[in-house]
Computed example of a mutant assay.
Amino acid sequence: MKDAETVVFGGGGLDRAAELRGDGAGLGELAAQRDSRWIALWRGKPMVEGPAEAPRLSRLPAGHPVLADAREAPLFLGRSDKGGLWAADISPWEPPADIDIESVGAFLDASEQRHPAGPDGARFAELRAAMTRLTPFEAELAATAKALLGWHETHGFCARCGTPTRIVQAGWQRDCPSCGGHHFPRTDPVVIMLITRGEKVLLGRSPVWPEGMYSLLAGFVEPGETVEAAVRREVWEEAGVRVGRVGYLASQPWPFPASLMLGCRGEALTGEITLDPVELEAALWVGRERLAAAFQGRDPVIRPARKGAIARFLLDRWLAGTLD
């Protein structure tokens, strides 16, 4: 696809400066630069500021009071043309008791939390809600920070011997002091597929999704499996549809919590749908006219995948006839 890297979280141009991760002196010099900045995340939600229709990622200077709530040393994300960029996890901060945090971590988390020391108007917002309104660079930066911090949160112990590990390489590695094991940030490959049969596309909905939401079928790639085989297996297991030719379209880092979505297209060889009720609550073949109506909010059954997700990205281009 000619515009494959315009998908949200892709193509932001972040210079990850991997050569500096093991260079303590070089990182110290970079951190001391006047325009180096830190982004803060609370329970996986980045701090943003500005109007709701055009938020921007908050970038805090060294020593900002918000950063005092960080649980660990900040993680090095890379650099911009102005200076270095780090991520700080301030999840130990406790919001005031009168702030409703019941929806924090929910599939659709609309809550926002404001740190008393944050910049004017700054708040912690769910990344899925803000992702389409951030610049490509900010979206990539926020996704990288969220995925990296999420990995550290769940991988504090050695998978070999169970010993607590220590952070090295500026946050891009954990080492075990007991057995010498090295551990690296995890990314799980997931196939997400636009399956067509003639002029119709296959949509499904998971039982745990918001009411009426339909999207493309997706599933994890298993060990020893090619991307093409994963596409065919997942569609057969979930919907009972056989798939023939498979091709790659685009990819999207998806830090919820740590996936790489591999967008593919596939041609269905059969049309009858047989659901796996554990995976899917419903599935149906949808023509272009109906999909267009769903995108406009005019379909009584279908609520399409949210803007910013690769499913919506691929469906938009299928509808416009610009997949190739």
Rank of each mutant, 00 (worst) to 15 (best):
K2V: 11
E5A: 15
V7R: 06
V8N: 05
G13L: 03
L14H: 04
A17W: 02
D23Y: 02
G24P: 03
L30A: 10
A31P: 09
R43C: 08
G50H: 01
P61D: 07
A62I: 11
R71C: 13
E72V: 14
A73S: 13
G83F: 09
G84W: 00
A88Y: 03
A88H: 03
D100L: 09
Q113W: 15
R123C: 09
R123P: 03
F124Q: 01
E126D: 15
E126P: 12
L127P: 00
L127F: 11
L127K: 00
R133T: 06
P136R: 07
P136T: 04
F137N: 14
A139D: 09
L141N: 02
T144Q: 09
L148D: 00
C158M: 08
T163Q: 09
R166H: 15
V168E: 13
P177V: 08
C179A: 06
C179E: 05
H183Y: 10
P185I: 04
T187S: 12
P189G: 07
V190C: 11
I195Q: 06
E199C: 10
R205I: 05
R205M: 09
V208Q: 15
E211L: 13
S215W: 11
V227S: 09
W236H: 13
E237A: 09
E237Q: 11
G240M: 00
V241W: 06
R245A: 14
V246W: 00
F256E: 15
A258W: 11
A258G: 13
M261K: 11
G271Q: 00
E279W: 12
A282W: 06
W285H: 01
G287P: 02
R288N: 06
E289D: 13
R290T: 09
A292C: 10
A294H: 01
G297Y: 07
V301S: 12
F313D: 02
D316I: 10
D316E: 13
L323M: 04
D324V: 12
